[in-house]
């Protein structure tokens, strides 16, 4: 049987919710594969400004059972739409400070097109589908749930 490009490391968590710091270098090494000629990674960082408000820190609330099952669906869809070798995603929960890595997505594939496309698909879907909420704490002393009280265009 010809070797196929859907091999995955047995037992690897494809999607994981982490309550400690994300280490992109360590995660990236898990995607190494002799057949991979390309790797594409995305890191989402906590920034200090949102809609004109100075952000001091933020807190992610995650409903894990469904974040994991929905994340697994997203990764399966990405594998079908943009066949690649390996893909993983880690999302943080809890309190994060400016500059922290909130989410990491990595994809390895024989060629770069699939790596770019699968990575883009995964992060875009993770942002809109997983039950994850972000509460920002502002320099003004206020706080707010992103996409709720101040709503819309994220």
């Amino acid at each position: 049987m010809k070797s196929c490009c859907f091999r995955r490391s047995p037992g690897a968590d494809l999607i994981r919710i982490a309550d400690t710091a994300i280490d992109p270098d360590a995660l990236r090494r898990q995607l190494f594969d002799p057949a991979a000629g390309a790797y594409c990674g995305f890191e989402g960082w906590i920034r200090n400004l949102n809609e004109g408000e100075t952000v001091l820190r933020l807190e992610y609330e995650v409903y894990k059972p469904l974040a994991v099952s929905e994340g697994e669906k997203v990764l399966a869809e990405a594998a079908e739409k943009f066949p690649h070798l390996h893909a993983q995603c880690v999302h943080r929960e809890g309190l994060l400070e400016i500059g922290d890595c909130a989410v990491w997505v990595g994809v390895s594939s024989p060629h770069r097109d699939e790596a770019f496309q699968a990575c883009r698909y995964i992060i875009d879907q993770v942002k809109v589908r997983l039950p994850i909420w972000k509460k920002e704490f502002y320099a003004s002393g206020d706080s707010g749930w992103v996409n709720c009280e101040r709503c819309a265009q994220h």
């Binding site: 409903y63 469904l66 993770v126 942002k127 039950p131 996409n147």
Partner: peptide, 25 residues
């Protein structure tokens, strides 16, 4: 614990999870 649509029927004893707008990433 299964994602549903707003048209999904509910039955006696069900657990219904209400999620405000999500904001991952």
């Amino acid at each position: 614990d299964v994602m549903a649509s707003w048209e999904s029927p509910v039955s006696d004893g069900d657990e219904v999870l209400l999620f405000p707008p999500v904001a991952g990433g």
